[in-house]
C-alpha cells in the first residue's frame, strides 16, 4: 500500500487543494461518492455504461463518459492521466480490478469496491495495484448496528483492522461517572480524542471537565480493549460489552462484520 502524498487536502500554507477524481459506476455507491466529493469542491468525472444511470447522473450535472471503465480508451477519455485517484465502484469485480490496474499504471491512487466481506483480506494481501479496498455493506452495517444498539455507543470509523474510533455517551451507571478527564484512566491501547458536555459540541478534551451522564467522549481504541473502554465509560456488564464489541467476530476486521 503506497501512501500518496497528493492526497493531502491541505498544503503547508493551509490552502485548500482540490483534486481530480475518476469514478467508475454511477449507481448507488458511485453516484453518492461523486456527490460528496463535488460538495467538497473536488472535480469528478464518472464512467458508466448503463443509459438510465448516465441520464440520472447528467441530470445532476455530472460529467459522464459513456462506456466500459475497464477499457483503457474509456479511462483516457475520462482523463485518468491527470486524475489524482480512481474509484472503481461498480458491482463487477472484474471491471473494478482491471480499471485499478490501468489507473495504477497511470500513477493514480486506486480504490476498489468489492462485493463480499471475505474478499477484503484477499485483495488487501494480493492486489498490489489496489491502494484501498471498500466494502460498502460494512459501512451500512455500522449504521444499522448503531441504530439497533440505541445510541450510547457509536462507531465512527475503522482506522485499521484492529483500530476503531468510537463515540461513547456516559451513563449514570458508568464507573467513571463524576471523574474529571484528568482522572480518567483508560487501557494503554486507548486514547481520548474529543469530549463534549451534554448538549454541547465536541471539542479538544479539557482536563478539568467532569464526566457526567449524557456527556460524550470520542475514543481511539485497539479492538482488544474496546469492550473494557465501553464498560468503563458506559457501564455495561462485561458480557454485554463484549457482545457489543463483537469480539466473537471471526474475520478479525473489527466489530462491524
Amino acid at each position: 500500500m503506497a501512501w500518496y502524498t497528493g492526497a493531502n487536502l491541505l498544503t503547508r500554507a493551509g490552502v485548500l487543494v482540490f483534486m481530480r477524481f475518476v469514478i467508475i459506476g454511477a449507481g448507488r455507491v458511485g453516484l453518492r461518492t461523486a456527490r460528496v466529493l463535488r460538495d467538497e469542491g473536488h472535480e469528478v468525472t464518472l464512467i458508466e455504461r448503463d443509459e438510465s444511470k448516465i441520464r440520472r447522473a447528467r441530470t445532476q450535472e455530472f460529467s459522464v463518459v459513456e462506456g466500459d471503465g475497464s477499457r483503457e480508451e474509456i479511462l483516457e477519455a475520462a482523463d485518468v492521466t491527470n486524475a489524482d485517484a480512481l474509484g472503481a465502484l461498480t458491482g463487477d469485480l472484474n471491471v473494478n480490478f482491471t480499471a485499478c490496474m490501468i489507473a495504477n499504471h497511470y500513477g493514480c491512487r486506486t480504490i476498489m469496491r468489492i462485493d463480499e466481506a471475505y474478499r477484503e483480506e484477499i485483495y488487501r494481501e494480493y492486489a498490489d495495484e489496489v491502494d484501498e479496498v471498500i466494502y460498502p455493506e460494512r459501512l451500512g452495517a455500522i449504521g444499522a448496528k448503531n441504530a439497533l444498539l440505541g445510541g450510547t455507543i457509536r462507531a465512527i470509523a475503522d482506522i485499521a483492522p484492529h483500530l476503531q474510533v468510537v463515540e461513547l455517551t456516559i451513563t449514570n451507571g458508568a464507573p467513571v461517572n463524576g471523574y474529571t478527564i484528568s482522572e480518567l484512566q483508560l487501557p494503554a491501547d486507548a486514547t481520548v480524542l474529543a469530549f463534549g458536555k451534554h448538549d454541547q459540541p465536541l471539542g479538544i478534551p479539557d482536563e478539568d471537565l467532569s464526566l457526567e451522564d449524557g456527556d460524550r467522549l470520542v475514543v481511539l481504541a485497539d479492538f482488544d480493549v474496546l469492550s473494557e473502554v465501553r464498560q468503563l465509560l458506559v457501564g455495561e456488564s462485561p458480557g454485554k460489552a463484549a457482545a457489543n464489541a463483537g469480539s466473537d467476530a471471526t474475520s478479525g476486521t473489527g466489530g462491524v462484520n
Partner: peptide, 8 residues
C-alpha cells in the same frame, strides 16, 4: 492461482 474477479 489466486485471481482477481468473481472467482477466487
Amino acid at each position: 492461482h489466486i485471481v482477481a474477479g468473481d472467482v477466487d
